[in-house]
Design a binder for these strands. Structure first.
Lengths: 358, 358
DNA sequence: TCGGTGCATTGAATCGATTCATTCACGTTG
DNA sequence: CAACGTGAATGAATCGATTCAATGCACCGA
């Protein structure tokens, strides 16, 4: 029905273009994909035919089926996409990934795990992408098997290595240890720990050693070990490091602060597993009439921009979040498996830490 | 080669599953897509066969070709993806869109226009998505035609309506006018304007009336008109509203402030077209030894979170950025064209504005 | 008992391009 | 002059599912 110049737009197929140009479909395809394989005059002819028919180029879906190139990288998280976009650390990660995608001419698809729950849900199995960046999945999440079976290339950020092209991260344990060591060096002997989630579903609240041992989020477990190790080295026992699990939200951080302060012998310092937690904790501390760092010290983790601007400025572990995103995408673009990339993180001492009150 | 339980993973196709289960391919397809159309026992049989073969579900690419459902929404911007992710307003927009996508079980693909420049670049023509959210394109960008030809559903955010399902925005002109009116109500007679880009490529610097008239970014032009209109209403002429074009970056905002202060008769207030600009301007003003709002008032635009936390807290126009993102995605998901959605924006008076020094 | 009704299942056509083994034409070289 | 090599163009097979008209079957009421 669409032969010749029937004029209805949006309906022309490569076949029609080829016919109008008087060449084979294969040649027409080459014009759009490998132009240098086609003689100039023919190429021109095909392009003109395309123009006349209003053909804008190969349809992505069909091209994808045959060639397998989707033209985008997917970032999978077990949180929701909205969380990733709203969280300061997630934003940095995303910014780095976006930058690398821009450079490579690729799109960046964000997929929240929450999506998978919908009936027609989008997930690892249905996502269309040339490669996957997996961010923050529980250690033994089935996603890795599914990804492998599906045949997708993937890279893990801040997670364990389970197959895949590479694992990008920092030395979590050492980084956490340096935060704790900074505190004990200042003389603190009781350090409250405001930790991130141990598993995907655990609720906010105080946690004990058994729960710590059963942590399923890799980074959380490692950092906890780092804290404990450095504390022990300074002669500070686990009983002097009460821990409270937050959800990386201001609300749960406030809960944590209140709990710490309600202890018979409250800590003189707080080690927080994210800057978001640390900032919220400082705000709560101020509300409760405490002065940071005079009455109580606070150290964060991540190095988000807001931490440098807060009052007092936050002492924290600065980690190269943008670089992680960039590295992950670049490895995927390259396609070759590499060694794990352990990026540098460092303690940045600002104004929120000081010796304990005597 | 893959008949029976040959065991090699990742290679099973629906056809194989159907064969092993002893049903037609059509039925097997239904098991995965419309399970209630298939009798329980058959369904079970197919599922088991799939399991045995390590079949994880229909391959997205093939499904897409036939059904046309990609399972994701694309957010197109003429800036880079990295910019969108890093900009405070962009983040809010993204957060809203992500939330709606989460709820609908869809992925969210961010596509920066920069990508199109690469040879194998991803762009409107090659993007795979069920719908497109177009954010911030110059008025007569060719993208709309291409999108229409390609047959994609799209919605415009903060842009003009050029086809598409809907246009989401605020009354830019009225919003800007209310910011300016607030300033003139306080008694300001000279108001510097720190504007966003007028076109995609224009450099930072002072601008004149001719350039303003030639603005190609719709929101910029409209807001400029709003400012001018409100100023005129208060008897403040264009000659008393020097304008400087920034790039929505701290660096260019500082340039703008310096230029304003170098004027023979510097303004007593600054109307900034984004909170990012306003915050950077306030910082620069402080560096130059000026006190806000005592020496000079500053009003922003957008209502990002940092504006409420700054010192002094920023007077600004709060616009429902998250809501815009959500609405855009929801309309796309719905698929029905609707009227334009003009969302409410309102002036929020905080501490950065005061009467001019006498 | 028989025609009719409704629902589950089948099977082939189809989506729109890419790919690759072949064919073809046209100099070049021995 | 024939054989050969080279590079461009062809055309059919293929990617892997979805869709839908046609079919078969069982059950119901008359």
């Amino acid at each position: 029905m669409n032969d010749g110049s029937s004029g209805q737009p949006g309906k022309a197929r490569l076949k029609d273009v080829a016919a109008l140009a008087g060449v084979s479909q294969g040649t027409a395809s080459n014009v759009f994909n490998k132009p240098d394989l086609v003689a100039e005059n023919l190429r021109e002819q095909v392009l003109q035919a395309a123009q006349k028919l209003g053909y804008t180029g190969p349809q992505p879906a069909a091209r994808l089926l045959r060639s397998g190139k989707a033209g985008c990288i997917a970032l999978l998280t077990d949180a929701s996409a909205a969380y990733l976009v709203s969280d300061a650390y997630g934003q940095r990660l995303l910014a780095g990934a976006a930058q690398a995608c821009d450079a490579a001419g690729l799109g960046l698809t964000i997929v929240g795990q929450g999506a998978a729950k919908t009936a027609s849900g989008w997930s690892v199995d249905t996502a269309i992408a040339d490669g996957f960046v997996i961010y923050c999945f529980e250690e033994n999440d089935g996603i890795f098997d599914r990804l492998r079976r599906r045949g997708g290339a993937y890279v893990t950020v801040d997670g364990g290595r389970r197959g895949g092209l590479a694992r990008i991260g920092i030395d979590e344990e050492a980084a956490a240890a340096s935060a704790m060591a900074h505190l004990t060096d200042l003389g603190h002997r009781r350090v409250g720990i405001l930790t991130l989630e141990l598993t995907q579903t655990s609720p906010p609240g105080p946690i004990d050693a058994a729960q710590v041992a059963a942590a399923r989020y890799r980074t959380t477990g490692l950092r906890l070990r780092g804290y404990a190790h450095a504390a022990a080295l300074a002669g500070v026992g686990a009983e002097d490091c009460p821990a409270f699990q937050t959800r990386n939200s201001a609300a749960s951080a406030r809960l944590g602060v209140d709990w710490m302060l309600s202890l018979p012998n409250p800590p003189t310092a707080l080690a927080c597993m994210s800057d978001v937690i640390a900032l919220a904790a400082m705000a709560r501390l101020k509300e409760r009439g405490l002065s940071v760092p005079r009455d109580i010290s606070v150290v964060g983790f991540d190095g988000i921009a807001a931490g440098a601007l807060s009052e007092p400025a936050l002492t924290t572990i600065i980690q190269p979040a943008e670089e992680k995103g960039r590295a992950a995408v670049n490895i995927l673009v390259d396609g070759r498996p590499t060694d794990d990339e352990i990026l540098p993180a460092r303690l940045c001492v600002r104004a929120s830490t000081a010796p304990p009150p005597r």
